[in-house]
Amino acid sequence: MLEFMQQLVNGLSLGAIYALIALGYTMVYGIIMLINFAHGDIMMVGAYVGFFSISILGSNIVVAMIFAMVSCALLGVVIEKVAYKPLRNSTRIAALITAIGVSLFLEYITLYFLTAQQRVYPDSAFPLHKYEVLGLVISNKDIFIIVSAVILMIILQYIIKRTKTGKAMRAVSLDREAAMLMGISVDRIVSVTFAIGSALAAAAGVMIGLYYNAINPLMGIIPGLKAFVAAVLGGIGLIPGAMVGGFLMGVLETLVSGYGSSMYRDAVAFGVLILILLIKPTGLFGKNTGEKV
């Protein structure tokens, strides 16, 4: 029982990272129906920006995170303007292939300039404290990651439900043309979406750096794919869905590798994707007429 509880804790902190990445996926998909394949790589760029601002500029963790979020927000907007915007009216496959291109581009440009050698986040950036509660080991990093993921989600939910921009986002998601006719600038809304989504990815990148210490140019691929599955699991386009999907994926994977084998872990992720899409394509929380962002 204790072991099971520990596995749950392990799974939740892994899930928090998936959830943060999944939020960005789900937002972009909700607005322009694009699987932003490069989302995981934006996370990687965020991790590097965080790394350099800590190790070169000597900034503290909060500054580093803000710095990474701002730069990736800009990067996200630029990518959207250059690569995705010209394709807004083409097929979704064309858009996906472009996204794969952007993903490869970010990975190998980073590889080219920064080499494949992994970089190590300085441990001093966020010293570890362990707490033992009833035999369960929980670290301050676990708490930090889970809490900040939840806070970011609440802020996001607030923006979407309560602000004018959020209202416009929901409108664009529901019917782009009608929104345009109502005087909403679709371009601006798409840019805002990419900026927010990329900033969240950057936050996740810095957290991965803090949590696992080592980062490398290809680190975004697998978490990116898993987070996408998490977004689909929760119902793509739904903010709370991405959150729950992320946590579920994390717990599921940890349990599978804890009680089964690591080998099946990755198979489970894609198995879940196929099952969900075959049985309930709208995901766990998707209603066919539900509002999407």
Partner: peptide
Amino acid sequence: IIYALILI
């Protein structure tokens, strides 16, 4: 990088 540019 060239492959990526070709795709895009």
